[in-house]
């Protein structure tokens, strides 16, 4: 698609960095013993997973400007899709994963179609309410196990069941695939008509509509896509942890992770979700393990202070910091995106 000269150059650089990164990640998967079972492997897998989660949220929140705190619902539906297939039906998770993702998309469209009438904080609080409703209903829904949750059986490592114990290479490869999928989808949307429409809606819904953009259609498409991706991440989460129960997946805490990582990295940017995850996840994991001796909760105190610091100093997140120092200029339309610039 033809673009202004300057923009084309940036796309090329970004494209090269993207392919380079994918190559490195893929290489690590094939070199035997590169991943292993160390704690660092776990942190790497989590970074890729949370980056994918954040990027899925970014589709709706960053590019389309609809700040939702409800993504843990879709995450949870995906997780239960995988969990039900493995535990209740005793089969491989893959069909369950697909079913969960499709169900999440369907649910997302159903609940957002009325919610998109709301503006600003009202919409945000409506999404809180949705998470609470789903979370509590799941707790009493016996068909999915209710409060007891679903526990995975002990099985041999395999790709069929996507379960590993002695080595994380399988999980890592799956995480890279998920990461490539979600980021790849966003990359392709960025340059397509849908991407431009989304950004137009974000900048000013009424203006976009006056130019002929069907904002409802655009928002619903963004929502469905975002929910689908979030559900895939949820399925991975279930497979990784050998268990699903409602408070693990459908909770405000989990929803906040989707939001925080994206905003701390840089909302509405391609790299923001990855940067946010690359900083927050190691911080979260390493402070918990190494600061435990300082007393309970010290890691969380640091986490809280970091969030405050970032929001006070640079609400555009890490991408904002980088822009300040002239690195990774980013695309001209996304460089100026701040948390909450979205039209209320």
């Amino acid at each position: 698609m033809a673009e202004a000269g300057g923009a084309v150059k940036k796309t090329d650089t970004e494209g090269r960095i993207w392919l380079g990164l994918l190559a490195v990640l893929a290489l690590l998967a094939v070199i035997p013993g590169a991943i292993g079972n160390a704690f660092h492997a776990h942190v790497l897998v989590l970074i890729l997973l949370y980056a994918s989660m954040a990027q899925s949220w970014n589709i709706l929140g960053g590019y389309c400007g609809q700040i939702s705190f409800g993504h843990s619902v879709f995450f949870g539906i995906g997780a239960y899709g995988a969990g039900m297939a493995m535990v209740r039906y005793g089969s491989a998770p893959w069909l369950g994963v697909l079913a969960g993702a499709l169900a999440a998309s369907a649910v997302s469209v159903l609940i957002s179609w009325p919610c998109f009438k709301l503006r600003g904080h009202y919409f945000a609080i409506a999404t809180f309410a949705v998470v609470e409703i789903f979370g509590r209903l799941f707790l009493v829904w016996d068909w999915i196990g209710g409060a007891l949750g679903l526990d995975y059986p002990i099985m041999d490592d395999s790709w069929t069941h996507f379960l590993w114990s002695s080595d994380k290479t399988g999980y890592y490869t799956g995480a890279v695939a998920l990461f490539a999928l979600v980021f790849g989808v966003v990359r392709s949307i960025e340059g397509r008509r849908l991407g431009y429409y989304m950004r137009a809606v974000r900048e000013g819904q009424e203006t976009a509509e006056s130019l002929g953009v069907n904002s409802t259609h655009v928002k619903l498409t963004a929502m469905a896509l975002s929910a689908f991706m979030a559900a895939l991440c949820g399925a991975f989460f279930a497979q990784y942890n050998y268990r699903v129960d409602p408070p693990m997946v459908v909770s405000l805490d989990m929803s906040m992770k989707f939001v925080l990582i994206t905003i701390l990295g840089g909302m509405g940017t391609f790299w923001g979700p990855l940067l946010g995850a690359a900083v927050l996840i190691p911080l979260q994991e390493y402070t918990r393990t190494y600061l435990a001796s300082l007393g309970a909760g010290v890691d969380q105190v640091i986490y809280g202070l970091l969030i405050i610091f970032m929001m006070v100093r640079q609400p555009r997140g890490i991408m904002g910091f980088l822009a300040e120092f002239g690195i990774l200029g980013g695309r001209s339309d996304s460089a100026g995106k701040e948390a909450g610039d979205a039209s209320p």
Partner: peptide
């Protein structure tokens, strides 16, 4: 959290 329990056990 069960997911943290799993990763802590591994660690």
């Amino acid at each position: 959290k069960p997911d943290v329990a799993k990763s802590e056990a591994e660690r």
